[in-house]
Design a protein around this nucleic acid. Structure first.
Lengths: 221, 221
DNA sequence: TGTGCATACATTGTATGCAAAACTCATCGA
DNA sequence: TCGATGAGTTTTGCATACAATGTATGCACA
């Protein structure tokens, strides 16, 4: 395990929050392999904090489904089977569809602008900018959750969004897939623009279901 | 805040797990009011542990949406508006419907027996046994998640199931509502018995949506 | 060579200490 | 009367120390 770079003090005053972010990023980027063990002391020394905030971070990440904690035996990056990932996407398509539906009635013009800009940025990214695509994609989806503004929906959706990430590292490497996602995002945006709740729900649901198909295929190989 | 009874050492070796359970129970039962502040030292002394496992428990419960943590300012029982609870139930109906669908293909005869027994126990409970009903109800729903056996689905569903509990304390006090839930559980069971995935999904979805309606009404008053 | 056990090492779990931040509340001045 | 100020208290956040548990190594013996 190798966490690149030194410790960056967080905007949020809490050290554990910083550790959570660093570890989460390392996990969803696949820099720490599924199944790999993570030791408290190692992370602590690499990030320049004591074991206390690291332990706390482990608990948070375990609650998000990214780690498993066996009492006395330490933390491992959680392993999901292809079937697990398929289920997650199916649930996610329902949840995000629902989020899009709620968002349609609440979204402000300013938030619509942010969504459009996200679409444009994604389209502007060159083929092969895998991690940039990933980031922009997360931004798009998270924007919609934040429109709904329900804490629990946001939690749930975020987990469903993050858990499959280690397994779709090179999803964006295929230009055809990227193009399809661009169009899907535009379709969601268009529905929200005219505040059509049902169309937004359907567009989002199909989008996520499609992605789930692709990812399952990729994993199966 | 008052946590009744002394500290019970956990089967699971970790003290924080025990604290999580105790606090979770106190919150979902409404023994600690939404919005109420919880202090680390107070909980620690009441449960006979140090502040460390209590802090850890706070993080877990915050991740479940039951607490809010403001850095430097402590923990409060999370407050949800009636609208929030409505949204949670809508999402929950989708997620649990999906869980029921998956369960139909996987459920064993033994698990079916457990479900039937849960139905019978609920029906046998007298009107007014509010907390027993609540408990039995949780058992029924959790059984179905455990059939699917997907860690992330289980996390998500559990959160959606628990968050509204402080707000539906006296849901079961109305015999008519109890009777309706009994029938709904039977309907889900019947669909699973014949492994009819679509029927199970629909039955569960309607059941949860109905409950959501009722709860919203209760809160609104 | 392979198995069982004892010992040493590594890692986790919990408690405690200390510094910093936040809160309380009385006092002061406008 | 009301808000601002500041000392004292409380509470949190992190680090460290110690205890308990898990893991690996090496040796005796079959």
């Amino acid at each position: 395990m190798q966490l690149h770079g030194g410790y960056v003090p967080q905007a949020d005053g809490n050290a554990n929050a910083g550790v959570v972010e660093r570890l989460r990023e390392a996990i969803v980027r696949g820099e720490i392999e599924p199944g790999e063990r993570i030791r408290e002391a190692e992370v602590a020394s690499q990030l320049g904090v004591s074991r206390t905030p690291v332990r706390e971070a482990f608990l948070v990440l375990a609650a998000e489904g990214l780690l498993t904690l066996q009492p006395g035996k330490g933390a491992h990056v959680r392993v999901y089977s292809a079937e697990d990932i398929r289920i997650v996407h199916e649930v996610r398509s329902l949840v995000e569809g629902c989020a899009a539906k709620f968002a349609a009635d609440r979204i402000s013009n300013q938030q619509l602008d942010l969504l459009r800009e996200s679409c444009e940025r994604l389209e502007a990214l060159p083929d092969g900018a895998v991690s940039d695509c990933n980031e922009e994609n997360l931004r798009f989806h998270n924007l919609i959750f934040s429109v709904v503004g329900n804490a629990q929906l946001m939690h749930v959706a975020r987990h469903l969004l993050e858990v499959p990430l280690p397994y779709k590292r090179d999803y964006w490497s295929d230009p055809a897939r990227k193009r399809r996602s661009e169009l899907a995002h535009r379709r969601v945006y268009a529905a929200l623009l005219v505040r059509d709740a049902l169309a937004a729900e359907e567009a989002m649901r199909e989008h996520v279901a499609d992605v789930g198909q692709d990812v399952s295929q990729v994993i199966a190989n």
